[in-house]
């Protein structure tokens, strides 16, 4: 009885979603015209839509070529600070809840030869790729969040191939705290040297070069270190716990 009711509810949900998506996608022509909207009376673009403003003015306002990076760090930087705080709270909760169950097992099964030797070769390139991704976040696709997760995946590979691989918890938490403090301090310097929190007060430089876009690369490097160390410590906590 309940199974049939669930199937009926699921089918109704699917059909209504399909109808809603059909309505949304048939209004694409309208949206496309709206992207080029200018006020016909005084020829000003004060009423332009938000994506149009981002695409047109990001290069002049922030100096970053990648618009997604400019939005994450510059236009909505305070929101990113909140997201990083959520990440920190979740990692702390994992460590806190597993405190009683935490112990290192003595005898674990070894991985096979190909995984062990291959991970030795792959790990430096994984770390280098992650660092490249978060340093060049304002020029190419990527940034702190993808770069940090690539670094955490590299450490996951080491944990899979060497069961005794262990990262120092204290050093990880120190690194994570330093990255968080750097983020907040850069924002507070904006309050001191300029007008508001997280304002881009440095010189924008040559647009399109590595050293440009003011505080965006600095903040994204801090975010990359923070995300990488937090995700690695979460996975290590989950791996080392004993039932």
């Amino acid at each position: 009885m309940r199974k049939q009711a669930s199937v009926v509810i699921t089918v109704i949900f699917f059909l209504s979603l399909t109808f809603a998506f059909y309505q949304i996608s048939s209004s694409y022509n309208y949206m496309e015209n709206k992207y080029d909207y200018t006020n016909p009376i005084n020829e000003s673009s004060a009423n332009e839509s938000v994506p149009q403003h981002y695409i047109k003015d990001t290069k002049n306002e922030t100096g970053a070529i990648n618009v997604v990076t400019a939005i994450v760090v510059e236009y909505r930087g305070f929101d990113t600070l909140g997201e990083v705080t959520v990440l920190f709270t979740a990692a702390t909760g994992v460590g806190f809840l597993l405190y009683n169950l935490y112990s290192r097992k003595k005898n674990k099964r070894e991985a096979n030869l190909i995984l062990r030797e291959g991970s030795k070769i792959v790990l430096p390139f994984a770390l280098l790729t992650g660092a490249y991704i978060f340093i060049h976040g304002h020029l190419t696709p990527g940034g702190g969040f993808p770069g940090g997760s690539v670094i955490a995946s590299g450490f996951l590979l080491m944990m899979l191939s060497y069961p005794k691989f262990f990262m120092n918890e204290k050093r990880l938490s120190v690194l994570e705290s330093l990255a968080g403090i750097t983020f907040v301090l850069i924002g507070l310097f904006g309050l001191i040297f300029a007008t508001y929190f997280l304002q881009n007060y440095l010189n924008l430089g040559n647009v399109g070069y590595l050293i440009s876009a003011g505080i965006i690369p600095l903040i994204y490097i801090a975010v990359g270190f923070k995300v990488g160390s937090e995700l690695a410590s979460v996975i290590q906590n989950l791996k080392e716990v004993q039932e």
Binding site: N66, V68, T69, I133, P141, G142, G143, F145, P146, S149, V150, A152, S153, L156, L160, L231, V234, I235, L238, K239, V241, Q242, E243
Partner: peptide, 24 residues
């Protein structure tokens, strides 16, 4: 940007977290 993040997190880290939890 989203494709890089989803490939490394959705396919790598989420699966690893689930597999460690299933092992426990």
């Amino acid at each position: 940007d989203v494709a890089i993040t989803e490939a490394s997190i959705g396919a790598g880290l989420t699966m690893a977290v689930f597999i460690y939890a299933i092992g426990k």
